[in-house]
Amino acid sequence: MMLLIGSLTIGLILSLLALGVYISFKVFSFADITTEGSLTLGAAVAAVLIVRGVNPLAATMAGGLAGMAAGCITGLLHTRCGVHALLSGILVMTALYSVNLRVMGRSNIPLMSVKTLPQQAGELGDALFGAGGPVPLWGWTVEREALAGLAGALLVAVLVALLLYLFFKTNLGSAMRATGDNAQMMRAQGIHTGNMLVLGLAISNGLVALAGALLAQFQGFADVQMGIGMLVWGLASVIIGQALVGPSRFGLAIVGAVMGAVLFRLLVAIALRWGLNPNDLKLMTALFVLAALVLPTMLRSLRQRKAVRHA
């Protein structure tokens, strides 16, 4: 049961990563590699501030703002300096590795001895429902702090998804979505598509950095390597989400990204439980994304060939 609750909590935290990847890759069709650096940046900024005594909530928000700044730089490199989209993300991601080391001062910052948001959530749960030992749940005993962390992660995921949905329903958000669909048409209507892209990448990387800040607090440490492979993880979550909800409205696509992140984390937990070597996790994730990208095209091609034969 603790494995299930922990997996659900991490999945909900990483749903913010999935939402950020969804904005850059699906809304704007922008191959943003900054993700792997901005996640670590959010974790590094939050960890350093928490260790120095800053309120964990304020430190988490600061981590998100740092990620937004990284996204802005990527967008400006592409729109103002004419750097290729993929290369601009690679440049910022590479630079962020050194920036993260500078921010942290070392490669790893432990957070076990300081108060973090999961601990505050546990204290809030004790204040509301009374302090005590483990809680019985469906025949299992679960620590109160773990349940509080799950409830907090669920609240954050729902709140962020709702705010994101409401934002993209505004005139500005609709202009951003239209820019991703048809930038030439939006330019003809007098919309500065470059600014739309910069803002979109800022929001995307802000969500990713927010996920990194929360993940570091839940894990109890921030590490300079924690962002490696997270872009593929986000893509896998988005692909699973699309398979769950199909080609539907934007609101359901957001829900699908959240569901995909949670389901993918559960699948990873099950695989590890059944004996998958943790060293092979990144490889298996990459193979999964590759299969999800290639199989639909192969199946479509096979259906077309059968249709031609029967014609």
Rank of each mutant, 00 (worst) to 15 (best):
residue 39 L to K: 06
residue 39 L to N: 08
residue 88 S to Q: 05
residue 111 L to H: 02
residue 129 F to P: 01
residue 130 G to R: 12
residue 45 V to S: 07
residue 135 V to P: 03
residue 39 L to E: 07
residue 62 A to V: 12
residue 100 N to P: 10
residue 131 A to F: 04
residue 119 Q to N: 05
residue 99 V to M: 10
residue 9 T to W: 05
residue 87 L to T: 04
residue 27 V to H: 05
residue 12 L to D: 04
residue 66 A to V: 13
residue 77 L to Q: 03
residue 29 S to I: 09
residue 98 S to I: 08
residue 126 D to N: 08
residue 104 M to C: 08
residue 12 L to C: 04
residue 23 I to G: 04
residue 104 M to N: 03
residue 134 P to S: 13
residue 71 G to K: 07
residue 111 L to E: 03
residue 20 G to D: 09
residue 65 L to A: 15
residue 9 T to F: 01
residue 125 G to F: 01
residue 97 Y to G: 00
residue 102 R to F: 15
residue 116 T to R: 02
residue 26 K to Q: 13
residue 51 V to I: 15
residue 113 S to I: 08
residue 69 A to W: 14
residue 25 F to M: 11
residue 74 T to Q: 04
residue 136 P to M: 12
residue 18 A to M: 14
residue 84 H to P: 05
residue 134 P to C: 06
residue 70 A to T: 10
residue 97 Y to N: 03
residue 109 I to W: 06
residue 54 V to L: 15
residue 97 Y to K: 07
residue 120 Q to D: 11
residue 111 L to D: 02
residue 60 T to K: 10
residue 39 L to A: 10
residue 101 L to P: 01
residue 109 I to M: 11
residue 48 V to M: 11
residue 130 G to W: 12
residue 23 I to K: 04
residue 67 G to S: 13
residue 122 G to E: 02
residue 113 S to A: 14
residue 91 L to E: 02
residue 115 K to G: 03
residue 70 A to Y: 06
residue 28 F to T: 08
residue 42 G to P: 12
residue 11 G to C: 08
residue 33 I to W: 00
residue 69 A to M: 15
residue 35 T to F: 06
residue 85 A to N: 09
residue 71 G to A: 12
residue 70 A to W: 03
residue 141 T to K: 13
residue 94 T to E: 06
residue 57 L to C: 10
residue 21 V to H: 03
residue 144 R to K: 12
residue 50 I to F: 06
residue 85 A to V: 09
residue 10 I to W: 01
residue 124 L to G: 00
residue 110 P to K: 11
residue 126 D to G: 01
residue 60 T to M: 14
residue 93 M to Y: 04
residue 116 T to C: 04
residue 68 M to H: 11
residue 52 R to S: 14
residue 101 L to A: 08
residue 129 F to S: 00
residue 106 R to E: 12
residue 137 L to T: 09
residue 11 G to A: 09
residue 38 S to R: 10
residue 130 G to S: 13
residue 128 L to H: 04
residue 116 T to Y: 00
residue 85 A to E: 12
residue 61 M to W: 14
residue 28 F to S: 04
residue 95 A to G: 13
residue 49 L to S: 10
